[in-house]
Design a protein around this nucleic acid. Structure first.
Length: 287
DNA sequence: AGCTTCGCCTGCTTGC
DNA sequence: TGCAAGCAGGCGAAGC
């Protein structure tokens, strides 16, 4: 489940290994992993990798011929650099969907068993615009975040997961952010618009810490080296259903919000103010 | 348009 | 032990 910290970790690792390398050839084995709007047959042979960076939850590899390869890892996707053919010793061949081969015998492999991931090749430099996603928590101004929340009746959890509102957060870090900000996940976005600054600052704090730990590995996520992250040992609520809240010792609860399992402390993140019925969403009932 | 649910996909876990 | 059902979830599509 690569979210911003995991993708940042992968991108940094790849940047160190790939930047200034020349591509011998590229391969794309499964057409269905290519995102719609992607350039179909990009000429990547012989071009050089300028930079590897992160945009939202995407790894962006920029080439010197103005092409960019945008990789979304979905939830089980991995990008690993290995000696040619070696990737298959640890990963099933049928799940390797694309890759870049380099002249010195190394290759970058895109592996994704669940195939929720995708690849987009574009000539545009504005990746966020091509993907239709918003700034991430490090880029977004509190004022902008506030405007995006104002008048919204959807739960703050659903809005934090919406990459068009703010990018980079997934299920884990949305829960962790709301715990830190002491906001109940079912709170309608509009009612916490004025807390935009606090939400952003919580998100940044959590994300920074997670990046410092190399991200969170529950099962699938690995760095470009195949290493695990360690932030799962520092999570306050995610995956801790029934365990004690680290702040108040109440039992962490798990409910379904926006179709996602959602973890929170019922005491620290109380749904306090009663809002007008017109703002109340239909599924505030706990399931 | 806003909001919510669904379905894609595989592999691990749970329960009978 | 074996097998089916349940679950995980990013994201786009469909439905309300």
């Amino acid at each position: 489940m690569p979210e911003l910290p995991e993708v940042e970790t992968i991108s940094r690792g790849l940047a160190a290994v790939l930047e200034s390398r020349t591509v011998e050839r590229a391969f794309f084995k499964r057409p269905d992993i290519m995102r719609k709007g992607s350039i179909k047959r990009p000429g990547l042979s012989g071009c050089r990798i300028d930079t590897v960076e992160r945009t939202g939850k995407n790894v962006v590899i920029r080439f010197d011929n103005s092409f960019s390869m945008v990789v979304n890892l979905g939830m089980s996707g991995r990008l690993v650099v290995r000696r040619r053919g070696e990737a298959y010793e640890e990963m099933k061949r049928k799940h390797v969907h694309a890759g870049l081969v380099f002249p010195d015998g190394m290759e970058l492999v895109f592996y994704d068993p669940r195939r929720f991931g995708s690849i987009l090749i574009t000539r545009s430099r504005d990746i966020r615009r091509v993907l239709g996603i918003a700034e991430d928590p490090f880029q977004m101004k509190p004022r902008e975040m506030q405007e995006r929340l104002e008048g919204r009746s959807a739960s703050i959890k659903a809005l934090l997961l919406d990459q068009k509102i703010i990018s980079g957060l997934g299920n884990i870090y949305a829960d962790e952010t709301l715990f830190d900000a002491r906001i109940h996940p079912l709170t309608p976005g509009g009612t916490v618009a004025t807390q935009a600054r606090a939400i952003l600052s919580s998100a940044r704090k959590i994300l920074k810490k997670a990046i410092a730990h190399g991200g969170t590995t529950f099962r699938d996520y690995r760095t470009h080296d195949g290493e695990r992250g360690s932030f799962q040992n520092h999570l306050a609520v995610y995956g801790r259903t029934g365990e004690e809240c680290k702040r108040c010792a109440a039992g962490i609860e798990r409910i379904l919000v926006a179709g996602r399992s959602t973890h929170f402390c019922p005491r620290c993140q109380e749904l306090t103010k009663r809002r007008p019925a017109s703002l109340r969403s239909g599924n505030e009932r706990r399931r």
